[in-house]
């Protein structure tokens, strides 16, 4: 057995089918996308090569692209600075739930298994200006002046989207941290208890540092998913009002299919791939050191 796996040729042939599938599904589309990004194709009909003009246009004169990049960064920050600390806290608390622990775990994870479409439509109705639950509630408790056109005002709309995305992704973030918390060996707990550590000290000084590897994976996943965010935004506002909640994915979709600038849309999608790769690389580098220290 060892001999077979030691043979490079065998390894190659064993990997080939998967690798082939992988490249067909991932690399070929990216390459094709890159090719089209160099054209002025409108989605139908003939097209000509325009070199890097689409890219030049994006960098020189497209405020909406930068706005959507900024929105993606905002969402990523929301994930890392709000959603994740909260998820860690909840993961630590749930383990003290006793016989409610299982039920709590299920409840927290439920939003993650409901279709994005359904939860997004749910929140859109809640935020509805005239008949939405939120405005009704504010009216009932006498805070009528707090009522807002939640999805119609640019700053509220982006806040609502970030909130809903965090809510939708909470289950997964929680689950990973919860697994991390559960993975901490029992003897560490016992040792700490014997040394007289309180529950808070235990969690802060022992469990939290041990969560570092999970944290690292989770942060990378969160940032990448922030950049790839599409369906929630598309369903809630389609990037509106007036492009203020445009994210990279919704913007490239709108360019390619709404405005028939297929080449331009492809250029944005290639940039999206590059940005995601770069961010992952940087994050992996930056977070590696921390893992080394505690692990």
């Amino acid at each position: 057995m060892h001999n077979i796996l030691g043979d490079r040729k065998t390894i190659f042939w064993l990997m080939a089918p998967g690798l082939l599938l992988f490249s067909l599904m991932i690399f070929v589309p990216i390459a094709v996308s890159f090719y089209y990004s160099l054209t002025n194709w409108a989605g139908v009909g003939d097209y000509g090569m325009v070199g890097f003009r689409n890219y030049a246009d994006i960098f020189a004169s497209d405020p909406v692209f930068w706005k959507s990049l900024l929105n993606s960064v905002l969402l990523g920050l929301g994930f890392v600075l709000v959603q994740h600390p909260f998820a860690i806290l909840v993961a630590m608390l749930v383990q003290y739930g006793g016989r409610w622990e299982k039920l709590l775990r299920v409840c927290i994870f439920i939003p993650a298994i409901i279709s994005t479409f359904v939860t997004t439509k749910l929140w859109t109705s809640i935020f509805d200006t005239q008949f939405g639950l939120l405005n009704r509630l504010l009216d009932q408790v006498g805070l009528t002046s707090w009522q807002q056109d939640w999805l119609g005002q640019p700053h509220w709309a982006i806040a609502c989207i970030v909130f809903v995305c965090m809510w939708q992704g909470f289950g997964y973030a929680f689950l990973l941290y919860y697994a991390g918390v559960k993975g901490v060996p029992k003897d560490l707990y016992e040792a700490a208890m014997l040394d007289g550590a309180s529950g808070a000290q235990l969690n802060r000084r022992i469990v939290l540092p041990l969560l570092a590897p999970v944290l690292r994976v989770n942060v990378v996943l969160a940032i990448v998913s922030a950049f790839k965010q599409m369906e929630t935004v598309y369903l809630m506002t389609s990037g509106g009002p007036a492009n203020s909640t445009q994210f990279l994915s919704t913007y490239l979709y709108s360019k390619a299919f709404r405005e028939s600038l297929y080449g331009y849309g492809n250029a944005i999608s290639v940039l999206l791939v590059v940005i995601c790769l770069a961010v992952t690389l940087v994050l992996n580098r930056a977070l590696k050191r921390e893992v080394g220290e505690y692990g």
């Binding site: 509805d128 939640w150 119609g152 009002p241």
Partner: peptide, 16 residues
Amino acid sequence: FGNGFLNQDYGAARNM
């Protein structure tokens, strides 16, 4: 059009 009509779609307006 009342408040928030800019984010109101076809079906919502029709139902209203």
